[in-house]
Amino acid sequence: MTKILDSLNSSSPLVDVRDLRFGYGANDVLHGVTLSVPRGKVVAIMGGSGCGKTTLMRLIGGQLRPRSGKLTVCGESVPELDRNGLYALRRRMSMLFQFGALFTDISVFDNVAFPMREHTGLPEVIIRDLVLMKLHAVGLRGAAQLMPSELSGGMARRVALARAIALDPELMMYDEPFAGLDPISLGVIGQLIRRLNDALGASSIVVTHDVQESLQIVDYIYFLSEGKVVAEGTPDEIRASKDPWVHQFVWGEADGPVPFQVPADTYEHALLGACGA
């Protein structure tokens, strides 16, 4: 009971991450990440490729287990949940995968209907109306009977978005929602993320490295580098930031605090040493 009250208490953040550590084998990915996602807000997690953004999201979704640290979602400690508890929690969140991850063997309509049919005992008539409403929200009601293979990349992602909001989640997570889209589709997805978040009263986490698009739609930004939060702030603070790391990332400079070269021994040694070996 206290848990429910706690999760309803709007002042506590929906997702709270404290000093989270994680690694695959001997290879550490996250070295103590701390961040929180307030209710009703859209939060972006940015960083270069391979900095642990997607790993962090999988930890929040409970697909991976952290080595140490605190991780609560809707007031529940995710690493301590068993399979049933995890599945119960996952019904309240949803995740948009990088390329949509639509089920390729069923139609767009059935894709959106999938979570409803699996989790609700609703009659088919109501499911039909709900699916059409969700598809209408992403502007693809006309594509209901198409198969996923007949969709463009942007359309597939919008269908996946419709499927992600099928059960009106409290937490939406987007894994690279802008990757590989043309500017128009990119703008459409960006606007949808913002509009759906506000319409559903949900909170959103957007993992991305697309700075310009996300600066326009999100409320707060965390920069992640080498498994740590290196900078954070509202979009205005980020734009005005004098931090060299943030500056390099936002303006897309090739060299800076993030070196162009992967750490290695000296160039001369590599070229000349090879002859001697």
């Binding site: 697909q63 990088q98 699996e118």
Partner: peptide
């Protein structure tokens, strides 16, 4: 194509 992961995240 992450369909299995997506299903797992949908609590299926």
């Amino acid at each position: 194509t992450e369909q299995l992961d997506a299903m797992d995240m949908m609590a299926v």
